[in-house]
Design a protein around this nucleic acid. Structure first.
Lengths: 214, 214, 214, 214
DNA sequence: GATGAATGAGAATTCATTCAT
DNA sequence: TATGAATGAATTCTCATTCAT
């Protein structure tokens, strides 16, 4: 039977994954250039040469690693939200999925942003597979809300980059602050509440009278 | 006289700057590991050995480069704003200083974020010299506005990371999108308007009736 | 019965030959070091490991390849020639057998001469199995002709190396010139005629009066 | 003054030569693939990395080595010979220059013939710089002798390859026989005499009556 | 101070050989 | 027997750093 074949393929897939996992860890922790093939191999529990059976070069391995990050569940942050009380729904959704934004994967991705940005091929992959779909999905949702009369009409290109950037940027700050970030000392519920309120209503104190001119 | 001394020192400073400039350029364009000392030297118009007169090692040079970025005028984004019509003042300020956020320096800094993040010493410098002052300055301004009754009281730690992250994140998106970013096709005035309105009032359409719960 | 045994042996011989053929091809085309075992295996339609069942190492395989070349029909170039009109006989013989000298095998052998020369063991095999018998055979024939009064008596050691070297050297030149060799544009009959005439009578124009000494 | 520059250049040339010498020795003794860069460096009294300052890769070094062999004084074997007693002149010339054919350089060249033959670029260099000029020079001399009525008219393309091949081939045989070659036990004068006589008059015993046909 | 040739440790990659299946 | 994935020693090449000039 093709049992033998199947088994072989499975082992191959397993090896590939083994290597990918080890490589992602090391690349994220030490950067691309500072991670050596023997190191990756050791970390994957394999011999150096074995990696080359599955990935023809360090660069190809890196590309595979980056591509594996592109399926990051970031896109799921915006699943279709059509609850009735929109504010509540949003909070619920964010509460459920904020962790996605703070996932290990996203942190690893951020740590490799430099390498991605500097390499044309990687940048293209990153744009096509992650950034564009992410922004497109946001824009779609935003437009729907505007049509529903719930959101103010703004330039969508700006809006999605403001909100999307906010999510990425906040996560980046949290990630670089590490353990010490005050965000770690606040209950997630509160953070989500503040986020939602900020996104919906801004910083403005509604009753505030515009300051008088001189 | 100490004229000789002075002259010497000036030449030294000039050399140091020459090297720093060349190194920053290359590090930002190619990353730390991919930039070689001979390359940096050539780009600075010097011989390889000369660099070692001013910086004891490639790593020290990198640290100096990163430190040179820490004086980035980012902090000036929030100079004291106490105009009377607060919204107008903010717009004026942002219009003047948005370019700071889109400065070449910030782009270079972003491209080296990975290297900074992975190195404890650099991360500490980055936090102390840039992130913390930046967030502290924002927090101070925010608190003042809250006391003035202009801003809603929120948890300041969250607020500043939302707004600060938004600014960084939007800039990052713009930078990674490159030429193709739609933001490049909008007049800066409009972008600033949208930003300010978003920060002040959020996405919410004021008149919208909250959707009825089931 | 030993039928099973016989069958096994036949398969073994076939495998051995398969491998030998593939290896000879590759070694000749790319050299020893540049030919890899997986490559040889693929070219033989076998798995890498299978080669090691029949040859214990790459080196042993190479030796076997070289030995297989030692049975090259070069020796037959000088089968017993005792026709009556000696010149005619020689031409006929050469016409029949010149192709031997231009055989693919000899070309392959020449391309591996370097490897053979540099390895003491291979050099010994080459000398014992090919060069010495070849020269010995020539010498024997030459001596017979001298005794028959047909050839001038010369130092046989020199004579055979002159004539043998001529045949090898001409073939080498033709082989390295490849397609472009003018020899390819002459009819073989003419070449043989010229060769025989040269070997028998040299370059000298019979009637030429020796130039007067000073 | 440009003294400094000159000095530098001289050192560079010296290094280049040092490396070339060591590389030629090793390549000839062990072959291209079997000679390692550290080995070559050690043999040249330098560090491995130093070689790469002067030759960008092992292959380039090899090409330089082969090119250095192309100036081999082989071409001088046929300097213009126009003495009056042609036979004497030839003997004298060969006596003086036979050593050229047996030079170390030619031996080294022969040992690398395989590598040259298998590499298109090297083969082209070899043909252009050595084989073609060598054959052309011979042809020119041969034609002159024919016109002078001293040599029989034959097809020059064949003649030069016969005589040239003879010289190469005899040398090759001597080289592969090594110490044991009987040629080493004969006085060079005798060898030259035999060569010249063979080339001029062939093997034929002048008085021999052609054997009767059947 | 300035130079850049020299160094050699360290990295990526290859491939003969082994061995579990 | 036959297979081909796994191994790791060996090879080429790079580059931070040193130091004689």
């Amino acid at each position: 039977m093709a049992d033998r074949e199947t088994r072989k393929k499975q082992i191959g897939d397993k090896r590939r994954q083994q290597i990918l996992d080890a490589a992602l860890d090391l690349f994220a922790k030490q950067g691309y250039a500072e991670s050596t093939m023997p190191e990756i191999a050791r970390s994957a529990g394999l011999a150096t040469g074995t990696i080359y059976i599955y990935y023809p070069s360090k660069r190809e391995l890196f590309i595979a690693v980056i591509e594996s990050l592109m399926v990051v569940p970031i896109l799921n942050v915006f699943k279709n939200e059509t609850g009735e009380n929109f504010q509540k729904t949003l909070k619920k959704a964010l509460n459920e999925r904020l962790s996605i934004l703070q996932s290990v994967l996203l942190t690893k991705l951020l740590s490799l942003i430099g390498e991605i940005q500097r390499d044309a091929e990687l940048r293209a992959i990153f744009m096509e597979k992650l950034i564009r779909p992410f922004l497109a999905r946001m824009e779609e949702l935003y437009r729907a809300r505007v049509e529903a009369g719930e959101f103010r009409p703004m330039e969508p290109a700006v809006t999605v980059r403001l909100v999307g950037g906010m999510m990425l940027g906040m996560n980046f700050l949290k990630s670089i602050e590490g353990e010490n970030s005050p965000l770690n000392r606040l209950p997630q519920g509160q953070i989500v509440d503040e986020m939602v309120n900020f996104v919906l209503f801004g910083l403005n104190q509604p009753g505030a009278k515009p300051r008088a001119g001189k």
